[in-house]
Design a binder for these strands. Sequence first.
RNA 1: GCGGGUAUGGUGGAAUUGGCAGACACGCGGGAUUUAGGUUCCCGUGGGCGACCGUGCAGGUUCAAAUCCUGUUACCCGCACCA
Length: 805
Amino acid sequence: MAYDFARIEKKWQGVWEKEKPYAAVTGDKRPKFYGLIEFPYPSGQGLHVGHPRPFTAMDIVTRKKRMQGYNVLFPIGFDAFGLPTENYAIKNHIHPAIVTKKNIENFTRQLKMLGFGFDWDRVVDTTDPTYYKWTQWIFLQLWKKGLAYKATMPVNWCTSCKCVLANEEVVEGVCERCGSPVVQKEKSQWMLRITAYAQRLIDDLDDLDFIERVKIQQKNWIGRSTGAEVTFKATTGDDIVVFTTRPDTLFGATYMVLSPEHALVKKWMPKLKNADDVRAYQAAAASKSDLERTELSKEKTGVCLDGVAAVNPVNGREIPIFISDYVLASYGTGAIMAVPAHDDRDWEFAKKFGCEIVEVVAGGEDVQKAAFTAKDDTGVLVNSEFLNGLTVRQAIPAITKWLEEKGIGKAQVNYKLRDWVFSRQRYWGEPIPMVWCEKCGWQPLPEDQLPLVLPDVESYEPTDDGESPLSKMTDWVNTTCPCCGGPARRETDTMPQWAGSSWYFLRYMDPHNDKALASKEALDYWSPVDWYNGGMEHTTLHLLYSRFWHKFLYDIGVVPTREPYAKRTSHGMILGEGGEKMSKSRGNVVNPDDIIAQYGADTMRMYIMFIGDFEKAATWSDNAVKGCKKFLDRVWALAEAGPTGDDVTPEHEAALHRTIKKVSEDIDEMKFNTAIAAMMTLVNEFYKSKPSKGDMKVLLLLLSPFAPHIAEEMWEMLGFEGRAMSQSWPEYDESKTVEQVKELAVQVNGKLRSTVTVPADADDETVIDAAKADGKIARALEGMEIVKTIVVKNRLVNLILKPKK
RNA sequence: GCGGGUAUGGUGGAAUUGGCAGACACGCGGGAUUUAGGUUCCCGUGGGCGACCGUGCAGGUUCAAAUCCUGUUACCCGCACCA
């Protein structure tokens, strides 16, 4: 009989609203557990079926922790600043704050319908001035410590809209909205010095319980490389500084390449005989993003600077200088020494432009045919005077020492990580609390003037000069200098969305505090986050940014731990039917509201967990949802049948212990799909042999974190005391989970031939005798002798045979 | 291009981490119940008549490979102003 999920779910959600079973208690004597999910961006489309996957997963984890006696903090909030809301506001002439409020209400309704055990008294909203007051406060601390600074950076500039575009708004080099070409334009921007923390962000990963691919991806993103900085002299007398990881190949440097934006190119322009070509190349490079520049690099492009050359400091040879877009201004010094014999990109470039290829490391193929790039002891230096005969590993320190002695180079560590561009010329973000005074320069807003509230504006459109819409608010912009009291102007750029999400987990600990971002008591009690689950796509930006901010807050004594998150796991995406990404244009988007209306929240929760390996992408299937509904109907029918007997029945005892073990372990390892499969197996057992009330009790406790509404209803229906969710998590007895007899596979020469049943943990001799006694095996043994036997305890026996002579 | 992943029946996925491939579901076939459809309950279900063959593809290591190694193809995530 199908159960009335609509009535049951409404009933229990009402009960939870009143009883507040999910309230976290700061300072409680129970051990604490802080489970965190990435808070959603409240988009106008409402919740996507992708959201409930991580939410349900952590809901299950935290519900189990509560039953195991933990004081659980499982909060929710909204990361509500950002581009889509702003664009919606521009289009519809509605204040983004109103749009945000409406969207948050819709998200809240949907989240409550799914029965998540969030502590609803701790909701945070990044666009609330009482929240972003502290985002601004953290910025001021960064500024005071010299970690926030202004620098000129290239931005995407739409030549028609006359505004700065986000990378996402640039599609194949043109503006997403109007289709006009987009160029790179220099703009003064606020920057955060995350590079100052590069080494610590790598080193401290070692102590964290993050899944390996997250650690690897972060390390590669930070991209530490060791090498040397070498100064080349140009024929003009200028110094050209390069970074290289292969100083040992210095004798093989046959040309140099500067990025098209390199300052020296501008300086040399009047002297260049081919200045027009150079300018044309610079303009072409300006229209490409870094990604396109490196992607298109299959076919290398560049221009040789005619009229200037460089001198290789080790051998005094004059070598040509090129500009090419495969050298990025943002990495290293924006200039390289090119060693075509031992670098693939340089080799390709040299082949195209006819540069000389000089072998300096022997041991590979002919360097005229391919670059030899091994950086270990397989290569030996040649054509390199005092380095000849050394291996690459020996030559690197030798040449580095030589360079240092001559004063033309030094050992250098370089990171791919770049400082964080923190300015946005947009309205819907936190105002940056800085003031520009002609006399005193940039001055921070005094802390007692925070929050610096985002003023209302008439239009949210970016201005023609590329400034934020705030720049038109002259009343707001014109202010007095906090330092000298003279006339001054406010910064009109706002912060990126990453700002609010870099510290939100701290605010959850004490969300209503108006004296500090959170009290010391709350921070000491709840830190660190015990388990943070989120998407892989956030690994290199959000996750790294928030680790950076946290380390900074630790350094200034605000937070008690060096790292924000003790453990990090990651979920896969939910794809639409057919295995494609869900999107409006494909028309394969599944709305959780529809699923809940048709099958109920518990079925939705069960299915999204049963769909497949939590860490991998999974394909939505409407049909498979029904299977989970059927399972809940079957459990319901067992309860409705009115089981009797408070004790566990002997015929189900072993199965119950095994199921408790499997479900307990699987939840800890996020293998929710197999946990549910184990419960299904148990229910199939219950259909073969009727369960007692005591058997059902165990099943309901195991089911409760997954399907809390129906579990609670059946708990009450069977007359158990209190609430299922507040009982102790069931324990299992290991000795009762093991089987008394085992069925072993019998292989002959590695191929399965039969099976035998023997007592558990039987010794080798017993197993081999049993195998030989088996009819099929006995036949296979005729005329053969056993050369070798392999017994794997409780698993299999493998007999290796050969014909008797 | 660079960095990180993934690939198993008709479908979603299991596989104690080198030890009986396909648990649990969906779908499909058969049966029971039902006036009928649906629901529910039972049984069967990788391929091949068979010796056997089967975990993207090609090799290798091993008594034994979905799992380890080498090469290769396809797809997914990220690439710094989307969140």
